[in-house]
């Protein structure tokens, strides 16, 4: 538990909270980008360099841009007059607090029973590449197929309807 960990954790949680609480959707997208960056820094502080840079590339580079595009295409940057929270927001906050209470209780009570190694694992990108085309080659192919299907599906779903109702 170093000062660096507390700083990164505070940035991440603040980004997440701002993303949920801010009214303007463009500000929310910026705040969620900060939260994604904080998670990437947490990956780097866990000596998972490859996962950290993948997180930066995929989430900050692609998902955040996609969210901003969706907000601008749906004119979501106008703040609605009747509030951004649903009428049942109290129930949602209660459910989220209960989930956090249960998970925090479970973590605090059980984390000392898990064997934990302090040594830094020596894993290079070469090892990850060998594992990806070795023992994990079938999941890799399935993910490739899934990404292709998702790309085609997203284009077809968002395409203009030909001669539709309007």
């Amino acid at each position: 538990m170093t000062v660096v960990f507390y700083l990164i954790a505070a940035i991440t949680v603040a980004g997440g909270l701002a993303a949920v609480l801010l009214k303007n959707l463009v500000h929310c997208a910026l705040a969620v980008t900060i939260a994604f960056g904080g998670i990437a820094l947490l990956f780097l502080s866990l000596d998972a360099q490859f996962a950290g840079f993948v997180q930066i590339l995929v989430y900050i580079g692609a998902v955040a841009i996609l969210i901003v595009f969706a907000i601008l295409l749906t004119r979501g940057s106008d703040v609605p007059k009747d509030g951004v929270f649903s009428p049942t927001w109290l129930t949602g906050v209660a459910i989220a607090s209960a989930v956090f209470a249960v998970m925090g209780w479970a973590v605090i009570n059980s984390v000392n029973a898990i064997p934990q190694l302090a040594a830094v694992p020596h894993v290079t990108v070469h090892d990850i590449g060998v594992a990806l085309v070795g023992s994990y080659v079938l999941p890799l192919e399935i993910v490739a197929l899934l990404l292709t299907a998702a790309t085609v599906g997203a284009v077809i779903v968002a395409m203009h309807e030909k001669g539709g109702a309007e």
């Binding site: 997440g16 993303a19 459910i95």
Partner: peptide
Amino acid sequence: ALMFAIGLAGALVRRN
């Protein structure tokens, strides 16, 4: 766990 709870609250509470 805290980030999961924040995300869950965001998914349940927001209207957009």
